[in-house]
Each structure stands twice: as structure tokens, then as C-alpha cells.
């Protein structure tokens, strides 16, 4: 047959309260095996309490060539940040 096991992306939650973070990828024939492999490969040192796997081909990624139009417009919207606003010195926390 000579076909390769598909590629999966692995996301691991290190402990409750934290989000799942991308840990890496691996090959597996199906979702169940991907979960088991992820457990065996990426949590050997007690790194996780929850795992997500998703077949890599199902991820839609933005194209870096569009970065200028996608992300640069947000750069000058400084009014979205607290430092944009002037407060009297007497106000220490707001």
C-alpha cells in the first residue's frame, strides 16, 4: 500500500486553569491512535492533564503574505491600550 499515517497536531493542557498549548505533531492512523501516541510521546514527563489532537490537514492557516493587511492595521490603534489615556498622578491604580 505504501501510504503514510497522516500527520496530527498535538495540543496539551499542562494543568487545569491553563489553556491547551501546541506541543508538536506526530503520525497516527486514526484519532484514537493519535491520542494514545500523543500521550506516549508528549506527556512522558508528566506534562499534561488533557490532550487535543487534530489532523493537520484540517487546520486552516493564514498566509504570511497577507500579514500586512491582516495584522498591521492593528498596530496604530493605540486607544485600545490603557497607556493611551492620561490620568492625574494621584490615581495610582485604575
Amino acid at each position: 500500500m505504501k501510504k503514510e499515517w497522516p500527520l496530527w497536531e498535538v495540543f496539551v493542557r499542562s494543568k487545569n486553569g491553563l489553556e491547551h498549548r501546541h506541543f508538536g505533531s506526530l503520525h497516527a492512523a486514526d484519532a484514537e491512535m493519535a491520542l494514545e501516541n500523543a500521550r506516549d510521546v508528549y506527556t512522558r514527563r508528566n506534562e499534561g492533564v488533557s490532550i487535543w489532537v487534530v489532523e493537520s490537514k484540517n487546520i486552516t492557516a493564514s498566509n504570511p503574505e497577507h500579514n500586512a493587511e491582516l495584522f498591521e492595521p492593528a498596530q496604530d490603534k493605540v486607544y485600545r491600550h490603557p497607556t493611551f489615556y492620561d490620568l492625574p498622578d494621584e490615581i495610582k491604580h485604575m
Binding site: L26, H27, A28, M33, E36, N37, D40, V41, R44
Partner: peptide, 11 residues
């Protein structure tokens, strides 16, 4: 038979 399976058996 594959790297992933190798690692699993060692576990």
C-alpha cells in the same frame, strides 16, 4: 514498526 509505536512499547 513506527517511531510512535516504538515509544509506546518502551513506556
Amino acid at each position: 514498526p513506527s517511531l510512535e509505536t516504538d515509544i509506546a512499547l518502551t513506556n
